[in-house]
Amino acid sequence: MNIFRLCGDLSHLLAILLLLFKIWKTRSCAGISGKTQLLFTIVYTARYLDLFTSFVSVYNSVMKIVFLTASYGTLYLMFYKFKPTYDHNHDSFRILYLIVPALVLSFIIVHVYTVMEILWTFSIYLEAVAIMPQLFMVSRTGEAETITSHYLFALGSYRALYILNWIYRYYTEDFLDWITIMAGIVQTILYCDFFYLYITKVLKGKRLSLP
């Protein structure tokens, strides 16, 4: 554990809790992509099945359980409790275009051929692109609520901080995993446009709207 990793995890946790808070407080999931949330739930489920097979630390297990619970909770709020507020007309990204390539790639570029390892690899690839339906939705509606922007910023920062963590781990522990690094870089690049808009608009107190 190092400071970059810890900040990354906390940023990730903050993002997930911000989203739940937003939906609960406004009693609405308007502007949130249910498809992105579904993809994240698939990601956590595929990756954290190792809760049953390996133990790393209490911190690790607790965070995994929180991420899993929060993501299923978010789906429950979006597709059941506040379903009438879900803006599905604007959430039209085809997620099979993301799931199928991620699955295929996880059979091609993978460390070892075991079910758990392929599921883990699939989760890494899918996570890298899981935000695309949400970004697509923002671009279709041309705007995002401020709290949604904070959510996206925290979520994007998490993987960027993980990149710093990987650089740090490379120098201090000789730890290197190209699968997570490449996927993490792709994931962070996808947020770049958004980061720019966030810094130039939201931080100056303006609502995020596209030109």
Binding site: R5, D9, H12, D50, S54, V56, S57, N60, M63, K64, F67, H111, V112, E117, W120, Y162, N165, R169, E173, D174, F175, L176, D177, I179, T180
Partner: peptide
């Protein structure tokens, strides 16, 4: 470091 045994990240 063997990343397969690592999996200590979230």
């Amino acid at each position: 470091g063997n990343p397969k045994e690592g999996k200590d990240e979230l």
